[in-house]
Amino acid sequence: MADKFAIITGASTGIGFELASIAAENGYDLLVVADEPLIEAAAADFKRHGVAVRALEADLATIEGVDRLLAETKGRRIDLVCANAGRGLGHGFLDQDVADWRRVIDTNVTGTIYLLQKVLKEMVARGDGKILITGSIAGFIPGSFQAVYNGTKAFIDSFADAIRNEIKETKGVTVTTLMPGPVETEFFERADMLDTNVGASEKKSDPTDVARDGWDALMKGEAHIVSGWKNKVQAAVAHVTPAAVLAEQHRKMAEPGSAGKS
């Protein structure tokens, strides 16, 4: 058993998988979780680094799922949490089923902040711990044809800033927000966005690079990291561009059937 213990959510694929790999390489025992059976295969991969790994298939869109995750720690001290689990949803808001957009909100917001409240209480009490929250530069942009998802990321980006300020006197606890742009993962397929410009684009970031940026910022205790220089430019521009212009730009990226159109 290692001296360090980390929880990584959404660890079966993509950014979460890469974050868990990096944590294992750095000697952290792991509790990895996802809402699909593939998490077991991912856990087997992490074990190659010689650390203890437990895998859990759980629905982190529910309070019960988060409670199952916390129970699986068996009371062990949690040194690091990568709150990476997230869900996307494309198409126009009026065409979306209530169950689908609620699941996005419950995964990206409710389950995430419930987990953070639980683990941060213990970290603040002992004055030690690290949190990495996967936000997005999407939180800076009104998300036409991805309105609920972008709204959840705006919440997460803002929430992290607020919590960081609330616990600023606890010097040993850090909260870092990782804010990538589009990443080459299963996200766009699962969100039914493969027929969009952004979904079909070959210019997405590599999840390995994004995870490494997030991990480096986490270890330094930085507040934010926007992964990729193009995304840094886009984030900066978003702060000074009218919302209506941003929404129209996002429409061109995310409107169904826009793939291949300028």
Rank of each mutant, 00 (worst) to 15 (best):
S21R: 13
K203G: 09
L70Y: 00
W215N: 06
M123P: 03
D59M: 05
G127I: 06
V240C: 04
V66M: 01
P180Y: 08
V32A: 06
V175D: 06
W215Q: 03
A58D: 14
A147Y: 00
A160F: 04
N165Q: 11
H239T: 15
E255A: 04
F159W: 13
K153G: 02
K118S: 10
N26D: 15
V245G: 09
G221C: 08
A235G: 08
K121R: 15
K220I: 14
I78G: 08
I133E: 13
G75N: 00
I78D: 07
I78P: 07
P180D: 07
M193D: 03
A71F: 09
G139Q: 04
R68F: 07
A223D: 15
T176K: 11
D106V: 05
L56R: 00
L116R: 00
I156K: 13
T241Q: 02
R126N: 09
T177A: 05
L19F: 15
V53Q: 04
L132W: 09
V226I: 12
A55N: 02
G10D: 06
W101I: 07
V240L: 06
I141P: 00
M253R: 12
T152Y: 08
A236W: 10
T196F: 03
N26Q: 15
E36M: 11
D35F: 11
S136D: 12
E40I: 10
V210A: 05
D206P: 12
D3Y: 10
I113S: 09
V245W: 14
H250D: 07
T9Y: 04
V81E: 10
R251C: 00
A6H: 07
I105Q: 07
D59W: 05
L69Y: 08
R87L: 13
D3H: 15
N108I: 06
R212W: 10
M253E: 10
E40K: 14
M253D: 10
E122D: 15
G228Q: 02
G86E: 04
V51H: 06
F46I: 10
D213R: 05
M179N: 14
M193V: 02
I167P: 15
M179W: 11
M193F: 06
A238R: 02
P256A: 08
V124W: 06
V148K: 00
T110D: 14
G135M: 02
I141L: 03
I15T: 11
A71V: 09
R190W: 13
G129E: 05
I133H: 08
L30V: 04
W101K: 07
A125H: 12
D3F: 10
S227C: 03
K118N: 10
V198A: 10
S158E: 11
V226K: 05
Q96F: 04
T110S: 14
K252I: 08
A58W: 13
V98G: 14
E25C: 08
T170V: 12
R68K: 12
A41D: 13
F155T: 10
H224K: 14
F188A: 08
A217P: 07
V51R: 02
V240Y: 08
L194M: 14
